[in-house]
């Protein structure tokens, strides 16, 4: 795939946070944790009102017009020239890669796309954070979303952050690069296949013996956690932002 060489700005004064629809509804604490981590790095975090959805569900379902309208409404929320940090690799892929496909001639869209950074990517490449681990020793495994891995090429940033945690043993699960089976509307339109995929993913994560797994995508996590709950397993996932905040024991702003 043709990944552009991504240029990373040095640490800015302010950043925008794009929460994503799933964090908004299902895990607002992920947003608060991310803000706490960014503020601890001395950044002012702007959270524009009016955030809804990046438009990916419609885009993936084959409704490009609908996706474009929603994309335009979201882009209008970020007029300042600050980086936009996104709490999901797949929404990041949508905003960085697919917005430009929806409006290929539009230079403003291209400029917007260049300001998009996935959370872990931003921490590693723009902030070069140094984490201090204050938690108890623990083994944990990481699920990287396919969009993060293949659309944004950031399969290594989650690893880089977790590896900084001195008392955390990062365990790789079998078939780590394989999709969890979410895929947006795929999980409903092809529910049988999707649930077979997530059953395998749940098994492989569980086989690590870890109590928790970490991910940077709530799409994957709703899917995987939903399966783990259904299968009555103890293993649960949490967002990298929440995990890092917990390990570093940062006080929150909210």
């Amino acid at each position: 795939m043709s990944l552009e060489v991504k240029l990373y700005p040095s640490k800015p004064e302010k950043v925008y946070l794009y929460g994503t629809c799933l964090v908004n509804s299902f895990s607002p604490e992920t947003g608060l944790d991310a803000i706490a981590l960014l503020e601890a790095e001395g950044l002012e975090v702007l959270y524009p009102e009016g955030q809804t959805c990046c438009g990916q569900p419609a885009y993936n379902a084959g409704y490009a017009d609908e996706a474009l309208k929603v994309a335009q409404s979201q882009m209008a929320l970020f007029p300042g020239d600050w980086p936009i940090v996104i709490l999901s690799g797949s929404c990041g892929g949508m905003m960085r890669k697919h917005y430009r496909e929806l409006a290929p001639e539009d230079d403003q869209v291209a400029a917007f796309a260049r300001r998009i950074f996935e959370f872990s990517e931003f921490l590693v490449h723009c902030l070069q954070v140094q984490l201090v681990d204050r938690g108890e020793p623990e083994s944990v495994t990481l699920h990287t979303s396919c969009s993060g891995r293949r659309e944004l090429g950031i399969h290594d940033t989650g690893v880089a952050l977790l590896s900084q945690l001195s008392r955390v043993d990062l365990v790789e699960h079998a078939y780590a690069t394989e999709c969890c089976g979410f895929g947006g509307t795929f999980s409903v339109k092809q529910a049988d296949i999707s649930s077979a995929m997530v059953a395998d993913k749940g098994q492989h994560l569980n086989d690590t013996g870890c109590r928790r797994y970490v991910s940077t995508d709530w799409g994957c996590m709703l899917n995987i956690n939903g399966h783990l709950e259904y299968a009555q397993r103890d293993l649960r996932g949490l967002h990298l932002a929440s995990y890092l905040r917990e390990r570093t024991k940062l006080e929150g702003a909210e």
């Binding site: 908004n24 509804s25 299902f26 947003g31 608060l32 709950e229």
Partner: peptide, 20 residues
């Protein structure tokens, strides 16, 4: 169809937009 092998996700009591 989501519920083929998956529990329904539970929304949080308050959204991030509300909290912020």
């Amino acid at each position: 169809p989501w519920n083929k092998g998956r529990a329904t996700p539970r929304p949080a009591p308050k959204t991030l937009n509300q909290l912020l």
